[in-house]
Structure formats: structure tokens, C-alpha cells
Amino acid sequence: MTRFLAKRGILIGVMLLGLLTLTFFISHVAPGDPAHLRAGPDATPEMVEVIRVKYGLDKPLMTQFYVYLKGMLVGDWGESIHSSRKVWDELVIYFPNTAELVIFSILIAIVLGVPIGVLAAVNQNTAIDHFLRVLSISGVALPMFWLGLMLQLFFALKHPLFPLNGQLHVLLDPPDPITHLILVDSLLRGQWSLFINAAQHMVLPALTLSVPGMASIIRVNRAEMLETLNKDYIVNARAQGLSAFRIIGMYALRNAMLATMAMIGLRFGWMLGGTVMVETVFDWPGVGLYAVNGAINNDFAPIIGSTIVLGFFFMLTNLVIDIIYGVLDPRVRTQI
């Protein structure tokens, strides 16, 4: 296990380095002169040159890259032109909001998707199965922004069951941070009304973000369950008199979950990308919205910072998923 973790740690380091390199060079081939942008539209050529020297933008590319890498490693992630604040400090505020949204969404996708997949498999080729298939295919096919808008229209405007957007009512203050996740912290501090308000705000964006993932989890889990239920060890379990509940819920599901876990990992990464869309639609103060604003303002440091944070988060969750794999499958466990 320690060897496995060490190996994965090194791998994550290498991938991060790759990600850092990639973001740096992409930002340098992108159109727009950073010195110009920083100086503002009314700046004279002299002022632009002053800025260029001040930020080292006149140095050779490799020197700039070296300075950039060093800065990233010590937490100096540059500053946003738009807000003139340090990117690191802003991400510390925005990232927990995104993490909360994504974790909640993947939980919804798993908690609903896995049992629905089982239900479809157990009722293969019946009306239930066909109905669930239509649902899951639409879930994958629907554009997310459209789904988000429709949910807003229906459940926030027409029938105001949930707030339209935002993360918390404007007049409420977030709880004193423990984990920086508002739902968790308000619970830990026993601030119930705050918790309820935050949960209400979470429902629509989390649902929007979870639907495509849930749909693919349903599809994979259904297919895997069908395959597993045909396995010899299921025949044996039946021959020995085990109950259908135990056979489906334990003997088959645990095996089916092996493949479903892979899909959950993929979908988690995909959701991180999806936050860009969902956070924009729901005005959710997270990394996705932060990156979008950076892009609109041609503000590179926030975009790079967001990319690195989301990338790192993705790598970590994949590590977690591989560990869960080991827990589920003893054959993998002996290898790691």
C-alpha cells in the first residue's frame, strides 16, 4: 500500500508538472499582449514598456517559464488583472464552493444512478427498463445549460420551490470556516437555518450537474449488472439457496460496481469541467465561474490557477477511486 501510494504520488507530481507546462505555453501562444492588457487600453507605449519590464515579460521565454514554475510551486500564482488580488487568495475562497457542488453532484449521481441501474437490469426488457432507458439516454443527450435554464424556469420562477441562483441568501453570512464547505460547516456549527438555506441553493445546480453523470452511471451499471447476473457464481449462489436480495444487492452489485467505479471516475472529471457551465448559469461563486470571468477579461492568471486546481483535484479523486477499487476487488488489492 505504501509503495502504491508513493508510486501514485510521483505520478501525480509528473502530471502536475505537465499540466503546469501546458498551461504556460498555451497562455503564451494565445493572442493578446499581456503587458498591453495589464496596462489598460489608455496606456501610452512607454507605460506598456514599464509594465513589461516590471513583470519580466521582456525576458526570454524559458526564463519566464522558470520564474513561473518557481512561483507556482511556492504558492505565488500571480494576480488577477481584473480584481488586482492574488489568484491564490481568490481560489482559496472559490475552490471549496466548487468542491462542495461537485461532491454533492457526484453523490446524487451515485446514490440515484446505481440503484436505478440495478432496477433496470433486474427488470430487463420490461416497461420499467424501457422507461429508464429513455430517461438515461435523454440525460446524456440534453445540453446541460438548457437543463439548468429549464430547471430555473420551472422550479425557481414558475413554482418558486428553490432559489434561482447563488449559493446563500444575500443577507446571510457563511458560517465560520472549519472545512470551508458551507453545508458541512453550518452543520458542524449547528446553524440549522443556514444549513437549510444553503441546501436549498444547492439543489438545482447540483441536479443539473449530476444528470448527465447519473445517466451514464445508470447505463453502465445496468449493463454490468446484466453481465454479472449471468455469471456462474450467481448460479451457484442461487443453487445454495441465497435470497434474491442478497444475490442482487451483494453478490452481483459488488462485482458490477468494479466497472461502474471507472465510469464514476470519468464522470467526476467531466463534472469538474461542467462546473464552468453550471456555475455560470446559477451564478455559483466557484472556480468555474472564476475561470469564465478570467477568460472574458483576457485575464490569464485566474485561468491558469483554476486549471491547475481543478486538474489537481481530478488527480486526487482518481487516486481515491483506485483505492476504492482495491477495497472492492481483492485481486487488485494484492497487486497494490
Binding site: 456462474d232 457464481y233 448460479v235 451457484n236 445454495q240 439457496g241 435470497s243 453478490y251 476487488d329
Partner: peptide, 29 residues
Amino acid sequence: SEERMRAIRGLDIAMIFQDPMTFLNPVFT
């Protein structure tokens, strides 16, 4: 019925199969 069969399987009539490699569940001891 299936419920009646459950009471028979293993208790009155038991069965073993051809391939011991595939008839045990790989993820449980």
C-alpha cells in the same frame, strides 16, 4: 414457487458444478 425452492435448495437438494474457478464469487472470502 421461488420461495419454496429457496427452502429446497441446499437443504434438500444441493448442487455442485463443473468449474470451481468460476462458481465462487471473486470479491468475497
